[in-house]
Design a protein around this nucleic acid. Structure first.
Lengths: 239, 239
DNA sequence: CGTAGCTTTGAAGATTTTCAACCTTAGTGG
DNA sequence: CCACTAAGGTTGAAAATCTTCAAAGCTACG
């Protein structure tokens, strides 16, 4: 029992199964359907757009980007950190709607969706947990959308930094010192900005003493000032 | 039984309960928890940001906008047509994260979420239906985000028109002739454009013979050409 | 018939992108 | 161990796009 609980934690599913107070037996049932994946290297594909849904994924360590591509370019849709879930949008169509790729050496686990939903049908608390997770995803995308939908480039980047900082803090990582695994170009694509614009604004933030940035290593020096940049934006503040 | 089935249809929950083949008894159970709301007039508030979650809502007829506001302005977040659901993002926090307002005389029904989740725990098919609806919402917001995140104003408006057209068609309304209940300013806010930009682009689409627009009445004259505008954008095409 | 609110249009200004060149760093092979 | 290379990052200047400001047109409604 204890073993499975620990293993669940190791699976970085803390965020998934712990906060809801499942019994040991329930935890074990959940744990039984979780498949631990082989570690992936940078550039390895977790799933490909168009493939039939196997399950949803949780990032254990490392980071992933999701994207779709057309003839001209690749559009970054998501940036996923440890403890976060991937492929929640694929449940409805049963096909992955984008490609997920490891941005660095990363580990993950898989939750086969049919097994998960069989289990949620038996454990109401778990069902509610899944509802909550899906709903939270909706909030978070809506929040991002709000921000990117016409606020200017400064604000978009300030928001991005604050968001990442929160997400790291939530998982127990440093809120003020972290590595970005997206390139300037990818980040630009994610936020709807040109790569040069991202670079210029990072430089300007640094000149103002808000951050220190060395390639992909970011230190947030003045969080209040960063927040000041987006203070006039009506936001659903992240928890 | 039959009565309740019809009533369910009347509730415009066709989209919600019909496609999954519930038994008559299950349909009746679902129907029993659906509360029909009083019709609202233009400007009436369905729910207010910050209020405790009562339930999620389905639009029966008319249309709703959702928004959040700050000192300076109101930001339109959503535009909801008959058959569509509102407040899916409030399930996780248990508080409405934006305000929903009727854009014209509208009817709706309410699904108290605690009762719904008690029912889904008993009816696996319904549980999966809710998972699917939540997941679909994630897809659709992600799609919108993709589009607005830096494509230009022409593309954003072409996408919007195509999206609305699809959504009306899906509910059995005309795909090529409909009324917009958002003003130019509101639509601009929704898409992240200035109201004048929206107006200019509608004029330009009309000059090109793509649409005919008389105030809020829109006729789509050349759907293929509209689609051509966004053809280079990698999209998860709506079903 | 007049007014208020929405819409359209023009012109100037701001922001962002694009194009181009150059810089920096990490990794490679001599 | 060093020099070279490729990839990513930075910076400047011109061009494109969108916003803002301003004014005027239209329509619905009392």
């Amino acid at each position: 029992m204890l073993k499975s609980k620990i293993s669940c934690q190791q699976c970085a599913l803390k965020s998934f199964c712990l906060p809801i107070g499942l019994s040991d037996s329930e935890t074990q049932q959940l744990n039984a359907i979780i498949k631990r994946g082989q570690p992936l290297n940078k550039g390895d594909i977790l799933y490909q757009k168009g493939q039939k849904l196997n399950g949803i994924y949780a990032v254990i360590s490392g980071s992933f980007k999701t994207y779709i591509e057309d003839q001209q370019q690749r559009h970054i849709i998501g940036y996923h950190l440890p403890g976060e879930l991937l492929a929640l949008d694929a449940i409805s169509s049963q096909y992955y709607s984008c490609t997920a790729e490891a941005l660095e050496t990363s580990t993950f686990c898989e939750l086969p969706f049919d097994q998960l939903s069989a289990l949620t049908a038996k454990i109401p608390m778990l069902q509610n947990r899944v509802f909550t997770l899906l709903s939270k995803e909706i909030s978070s995308i809506t929040g991002k959308q709000r921000v990117i939908t016409k606020i200017n480039a400064n604000e978009a980047l300030a928001y991005f930094l604050i968001d990442i900082s929160h997400r790291y803090a939530q998982r127990g990582f440093s809120a003020n010192d972290f590595f970005l695994t997206l390139s300037r170009g990818e980040l630009g694509s994610y936020l709807g900005l040109a790569e040069e614009t991202v670079s210029r604004i990072f430089s300007s933030f640094q000149k103002q003493g808000l951050i220190k940035i060395t390639r992909r290593h970011i230190e947030i020096l003045d969080m209040p000032a960063l927040k000041e940049i987006i203070v006039h934006i009506a936001l659903n503040q992240p928890d």
